[in-house]
Simulated assay, not measured.
Amino acid sequence: MSARLLLATANKKKLVELQRILDQALGAERIALVGLGDFPDYPDVPETGLTFGENALIKAREGAKRTGLPTVADDSGIAVDALNGMPGVFSARWSGGHGNDGANLELVLAQISDVGDEHRGGAFVCAAALVLPNGREHLVEGKQRGTILRARRGEGGFGYDPIFLGEGQTRTNAELSPAEKDAISHRGKAFRELAKVIAKELPR
């Protein structure tokens, strides 16, 4: 019988991505993943933390408390060297509204339009938390270094993927297949590490 695990996000693309990573790490029959869409009255949880880890724990704690399910949450974003590590935790709402990927991406491009190629480094960062109903908590982090391009490339992925060229890569994250992206991405690294914890905490 599959263990039920809540992913505290309403982002359907992220839900699909996490299910894919966990299926590969744990086995497709191991975890029954549910999202916030399965709880129609679930309230918005303010992300008031100043770090990715703080926000991930805030969301995971709330999910475990409200649903009684082991809960996974992540906070992730892009840290641009030329912007002193911003947008950081504000990545999803950098342009003002939450989740407007196109506007967020274009604003970052505009803000570093005059930055030389040698200074256009950055990193995708993901903090992923697991909180159990008994109060036990786990937090891991994954990071992918790379370069911020001057224009979009690729139609896949989401967020800032079309302008991010990972170290050692010739294609942006948006030009990679889902499996290729999972293998090198910040979220892939974080959730594979978290999968080890889930396997111990949610035994067969």
Rank of each mutant, 00 (worst) to 15 (best):
N104Y: 01
A56V: 07
E175I: 06
T67F: 03
H138I: 02
P203R: 14
I58T: 11
H186F: 07
D182H: 12
G27P: 15
N173Q: 10
P70E: 03
T9P: 10
R204K: 14
K181V: 12
E47Q: 10
T67M: 06
G121M: 00
I112S: 02
L15Y: 09
P46V: 12
G27S: 12
V34P: 00
L109C: 01
S2H: 06
N84H: 04
T67C: 09
R4A: 03
L26S: 13
R204G: 14
A64N: 01
T51C: 10
A129T: 08
Q144N: 14
L165W: 10
W94L: 00
R120N: 08
G121Q: 01
L139C: 11
G166R: 05
A10F: 00
L69G: 10
T67L: 05
T9N: 10
A79G: 04
D75E: 07
P43F: 15
D75R: 05
I148D: 04
R61Q: 09
A123D: 13
A127Q: 08
F164C: 10
L130P: 05
L130A: 01
I148L: 15
L22G: 04
V80A: 02
E106S: 06
I112G: 02
G168H: 01
P40D: 04
L57A: 08
L83A: 00
